[in-house]
């Protein structure tokens, strides 16, 4: 058979592409359900990580159901749009951040630990190479930081990637996001020796300046959306 003529080549290419496309579609739809479950479980683990729990060997989904007692959807003016569990969880904050600020739906997770209420707020911003994101847990005064969790897509290992380590995340514990006049000022991430104006600060990562600034801006912008809710 002559495998070099044009007709054969074109038909071969078409058949190949159709067969491969069909196969990939089958694999993708077959595994879809399992992948969604994994992604949701991962999100629950991340949310719980901001509460500084040891999840080793525990079923994250069960812990989540036990500790997260309420999920709120609020808007910029602190109006509560929904309290149905699962609705806040399903919000894609990347899509929301593309909308106008008045139209954004903002998720808040309310946790109950040892009969104390904690508010968990998702944050998202830009690092040096790609997106960074995380969750910040606040005490019931909606001011004191109880714990944080940060992760990143592709920050430099050993430098910017250190934001994912507890050593960095624990620096935030006990800091306040409001100033003495009860205005929202967030928390600064500063080089050692520098002093932030009228707000609390933590040390930046040496060699990870842009990622550290990214964390600072992420906190300012993401938590800033909740200003009205925090002052309630």
């Amino acid at each position: 058979m002559n495998t070099n003529n044009n007709g054969y080549t074109i038909i071969y290419a078409i058949v190949m592409v159709v067969v491969v496309a069909l196969m990939l579609a089958l694999v993708s739809s077959g595994l879809k359900e399992k992948q969604t479950v994994n992604a949701e479980l991962d999100k629950k683990k991340q949310i719980l990580s901001s509460l500084k729990l040891d999840l080793e060997g525990k079923d994250a989904a069960a812990v989540y159901n036990e500790l997260i007692v309420k999920e709120l959807v609020v808007d910029e003016s602190a109006k509560i749009l929904s309290e149905v569990k699962g609705e806040a969880f399903a919000i894609d904050i990347i899509k929301e951040s593309a909308k106008k600020i008045e139209e954004r739906k903002l998720p808040v997770y309310v946790a109950q630990i040892e009969s104390k209420t904690k508010y968990i707020i998702p944050v998202r911003g830009a690092g040096l190479w790609g997106p960074i994101w995380g969750y910040i847990a606040l005490d019931d005064d909606k001011n004191t930081v109880f714990g944080t969790y940060f992760s990143h897509a592709s920050e430099t290992p050993g430098l910017g990637a250190e934001i994912a380590l507890p050593e960095f995340q624990n620096l935030f514990i006990g800091k306040h996001i409001l100033n003495d006049a009860k205005e929202f000022v967030s928390i600064a991430v500063m080089k050692a020796g520098q002093k932030a104006d009228n707000k609390e600060q933590i040390d930046a990562i040496a060699g990870g300046t842009i990622t550290s600034k990214g964390v600072e801006n992420m906190l300012l912008n993401s938590i800033g959306q909740y200003e009205a809710f925090l002052k309630q």
Binding site: T3, N4, Y8, T9, Y12, A13, M16
Partner: peptide, 10 residues
């Protein structure tokens, strides 16, 4: 069966 001209693509 692979047509020589598009073998890399295949």
């Amino acid at each position: 069966t692979i047509p020589n001209r598009i073998r890399i693509i295949v």
